[in-house]
């Protein structure tokens, strides 16, 4: 009785060993002990500083162990340990994935980007002056030429920017909700470039002017009427300084 029990314990232990070795498939019983399972990867990711102003950069630093492939979203494949300067324009969570024979480990780091509201680098006075003197430019439907009623606003903007030759400005091209996503992206580019061209003709340093298009992806309002559509057909100025 006792002997039977003992031998069944031995058999059970042997079976357990086989299962632990990952031999779910039928394989001959191994005589050598199975190799230890591969160590699970570890990963850490940090940003220093983790709060910046728009236009500043921060340093991402990461460390991994036991990983054969390491990548960070929006950056791509990276070395196992390293650091990199990034300059996100909005608050961003960086996400690192470390893959190894022992599994996958993820790590994240949040970088908070202070927007236009209260960036200490740009004094409130500067911001207010910018907002008073550099007004957004509005467009007709499906058009990217500068309307007559927008010319004087652009002239003041040009004069102001020439008085502040070190200030850097982004011109965003926007479109209303009507029409195709893709076509509005190209139209947004043309609108931003049209604004830039006038400023450059007036003597603003082109190196201080960056253009981007958002098409109809970042509307200022969401109503389906002409008042709102007009608000969304614009070249929008953002002070980077």
């Amino acid at each position: 009785m006792k002997r039977t029990q003992k031998s069944s314990v031995v058999v059970a232990a042997a079976l357990l060993a086989i299962l632990l070795a990952g031999c779910a498939k039928k394989k001959p019983v191994a005589t050598t002990p199975p190799p230890p399972p591969p160590a699970a990867p570890t990963a850490s990711l940090s940003a220093n500083p983790d709060a910046i102003e728009q236009g500043q950069s921060t340093t991402l630093t990461w460390k991994t162990d036991n990983a054969t492939g390491v990548s960070i979203d929006a950056i791509g494949a990276v070395e196992p340990n390293g650091s990199r300067q990034v300059a996100p324009v909005q608050s961003t969570t960086y996400h690192l994935t470390a893959k190894g024979p022992g599994g996958t480990q993820e790590a994240t780091a949040r970088v908070t980007v202070a927007g236009r509201q209260a960036p200490p680098q740009i004094s409130l006075t500067d911001e207010q002056m910018f907002a008073q003197s550099v007004k957004d430019v509005f467009f007709d439907y499906d058009a990217y030429d500068i309307r007559g009623d927008q010319q004087s606003a652009l002239q003041s903007a040009a004069a102001f920017l020439k008085q502040h030759p070190t200030w850097r400005v982004t011109i965003e091209g926007h479109a209303d909700e009507r029409g195709s996503i893709e076509y509005n992206l190209t139209l947004g580019t043309n609108r931003a470039e049209a604004v830039k061209n006038v400023l450059v003709q007036q003597g603003v340093n082109p190196n201080n002017l960056r253009t981007v298009t958002f098409g109809k992806e970042k509307p200022f309002c969401n109503e389906s009427n002409e008042t709102c559509w007009q608000q969304n057909r614009r070249g929008h100025f953002v002070l980077n300084k």
């Binding site: 996100p88 992206l185 190209t186 580019t189």
Partner: peptide
Amino acid sequence: FASGNADLAMYSLELGRRVAFPNLGGANTA
């Protein structure tokens, strides 16, 4: 638009993640 600009990007279905693609400058779409 992760960089704040319209950039071309590439996702690998084999690797299951975004892979590196050069920044061409300007707005790049479609």
